[in-house]
Design a protein around this nucleic acid. Structure first.
Length: 565
RNA sequence: GCCCCGAUAGUUCAGUGGAUAGAACGACCGCCUCCUAAGCGGUAGACACAGGUUCGAUUCCUGUUCGGGGCGCCA
């Protein structure tokens, strides 16, 4: 909801040349200037006059009616003092009425979305860098579901390729390989392949057998990749990421639809067999910029397919689902590759999925490196964070059972990592600071959770009935109350722009701002001991509305709002 | 060498073509007979550099520097 919507019509009445899009509502830098500021830059341009002049004129010319107590021109701004009580009542009532749906425009009603994310190579437990994809993808999924989309989350399982072949060979030699040993085995396999030509060759041959449909080889590949996938999904489940559909790459090895793509490219003279007998696409023939990454290999000389080949078939598969939105979340290392795939698909007359990219997570002392042991495994972080949180919970919630305490500690751990990662714009590198992420102080997920716990505490202590019916006149007299209420009113605007920009970072920042606004209110305005019963009731309802909005925002981030902590 | 992304306080992040560029951490000073101190108040501290467009640029454009990613048989 836009709480200032009712202010637009009077402005248009005074200035018929303007339309609603020209009217923007800002918050003045200082509440003493007014409750809402209307910058005159755009309207003045349209009316061919100077912004300060228009602001001054507007004060006289526009009849805002009873909702506005006072209008003042301040330079290029038209500042309004509102009837806070009236507007506040509407906002609080809207939140308490819409509940878990507050903030949603339901713009996705009747629409379907396919979102692909994570797809970690099956070779190790996910580290926080890889998990960035899962967190972004999962939050985008939650966002689209919140807007009413029917979302199907896909996980593309990389269950083949040379590296997996080598891993299978090593797994054959070891007995009862476990998930925890996979990384070692993987590193070992790759080192051995470098030193031992025959071993490397055996890997390729195994891969070829697998592609040709040898059941024994297929069984071995599947066993190893399933083991990995299961282990990885268990870790990802801890941060609340889940998937609906698993698409195995191996399914697309001999996809008949691929001939059609090849034909289309052939007509453009873009396919050829190179001097080493590889099947190659010349991307410059289908619109690729010259120089960088011009060629795209589809098949090796021995006939085995490259990943790019399979991924094209996979894209066709997802297109067949006919969703309204077709998204995939990819690391920025896949950017050029995905653009090339899109080029090929488009050249063959197919749409390409919309790609969202995220940059890498770095450590304070540089890039993550599995080999140098410079990684933060997601599971390790969660373990450490939960242990720390459990100490605090044990002090604070002595009356809760050990299980209940552990549940809260786990929720805090998830909040810490998800918030730290999601709050950052995806195309920026995140510098991950373990100590900062474990501190739970300041601008963190746990801070927001703490805010929720305090609200719950007030609501528990309130002895009256929690009523949903809000009085028209909300007695929001103080700045702290007004700031909190207007922040709540911002939520749906945040959601629309998050959907449009396909990022949840702004939601994370918003949740933080809302929590700050509540904390200010909490310190300035006694709730349970407010002066009059009507004020107590109103502030309790404001607490409910804040909690509802915070909970809705946190849900989108995949963060729980514990009742106590 | 070429292409893509980024650069805001000591640090980690917000933000905007226009009103005094916001937080948090760290530093320093305060606050628990008061709805949870995982909190609050105060002090000090920033738009990489150089041009350009504009009435006005930290924001848009170009170049430089630095950081991240990428550039045909890895996925």
């Amino acid at each position: 909801m836009n709480p200032y919507e009712s202010l637009i019509a009077p402005i248009l009445a005074a200035y018929p040349q303007l339309d609603a899009a020209d009217i923007v509502f800002n918050t003045p830098p200082n509440p003493s200037l007014g409750d809402v500021a209307i910058p005159m830059f755009l309207p003045a341009r349209k009316l061919k006059t100077a912004p300060p002049h228009l602001a001054a004129e507007g004060v006289e010319k526009i009849d805002f009616g009873p909702a506005v107590l006072e209008a003042n021109a301040m330079g290029p701004y038209l500042n309004l003092k509102l009837d806070r009580a009236q507007i506040s009542g509407k906002i609080v009532a809207a939140v308490l009425g819409e509940k878990v749906g507050f903030g949603s425009q339901q713009s996705g009603q009747g629409k379907r979305a396919v979102i692909e994310h994570t797809s970690i190579n099956p070779n190790a437990s996910p580290h926080v860098g890889r998990a960035r994809c899962a967190m972004i993808g999962d939050s985008i999924t939650r966002l689209f579901r919140f807007e009413g989309y029917d979302v199907d989350v896909h996980y593309y399982v990389n269950d083949m390729g040379r590296q997996i072949g080598l891993l299978v060979l090593i797994a054959d030699e070891l007995e009862d390989l476990t998930f925890d040993q996979i990384l070692d085995a993987y590193v070992q396999a790759n080192e051995r392949a470098k030193a031992d030509e025959a071993f490397a060759q055996a890997g390729y041959e195994l891969l070829l057998q697998m592609e040709e449909g040898n059941p024994e080889a297929q069984e071995k590949f599947r066993a190893v990749t399933d083991l990995c996938l299961k282990g990885q999904l268990a870790v990802l489940a801890r941060i609340g990421a889940s998937y609906d559909t698993f698409d195995h790459e191996s399914k697309y090895v001999n996809d008949p639809r691929f001939e059609q793509i090849l034909d289309a490219l052939d007509k453009k003279d873009a396919v050829f067999i190179d001097e080493d007998k590889r099947l190659v696409i010349d991307l410059s023939k289908i619109g690729h910029k010259p120089e960088e990454g011009r060629y795209f290999v589809l098949r090796r000389a021995n006939g085995s397919s490259m990943y790019g080949f399979r991924d094209l078939a996979y894209a066709l598969d997802k297109n067949d689902l006919g969703a309204d939105i077709n998204l995939m979340v990819l690391g920025e290392d896949h950017k050029l590759y995905a653009q090339q795939q899109a080029l090929i698909l488009n050249a063959a007359g197919h749409p390409a999925p919309e790609a969202l990219y995220y940059a890498y997570i770095l450590l304070k002392d540089g890039k993550m490196s599995t080999r140098q042991g410079k990684v933060v495994l997601l599971s390790d972080f969660l373990d450490q964070a939960a242990t720390l949180a459990a100490e605090r919970v044990a002090e604070q919630c002595k009356d809760l059972s050990a299980d209940e305490q552990q549940t809260i500690a786990n929720q805090v751990a998830v909040a810490a990592i998800r918030f730290a990662v999601l709050r950052v714009n995806p195309n920026k590198n995140v510098t991950f600071d373990m100590d900062a992420a474990l501190s739970f102080q300041g601008d963190t997920g746990p801070y927001i959770q703490y805010c929720c716990a305090r609200i719950n505490s007030i609501l528990r202590k309130y002895e009256g009935e929690l009523s949903q019916s809000v009085s028209d006149e909300y007695p929001a007299t103080s700045d702290a109350e007004w700031m909190l209420i207007s922040k709540i009113a911002d939520f749906s605007g945040i959601i629309s722009s998050a959907i449009a920009q396909r990022t949840c970072a702004s939601i994370a920042v918003y949740a933080l701002e809302l929590a700050h606004a509540f904390t200010t209110f909490y310190h300035d305005c006694p709730v349970l001991t407010a002066d009059t019963p009507a004020l107590v009731q109103a502030r309790v309802q404001l607490c409910q509305a804040t909690l509802q909005t915070l909970t809705n925002a946190l849900n989108l981030l995949g963060i729980e709002a514990p009742e106590r902590m």
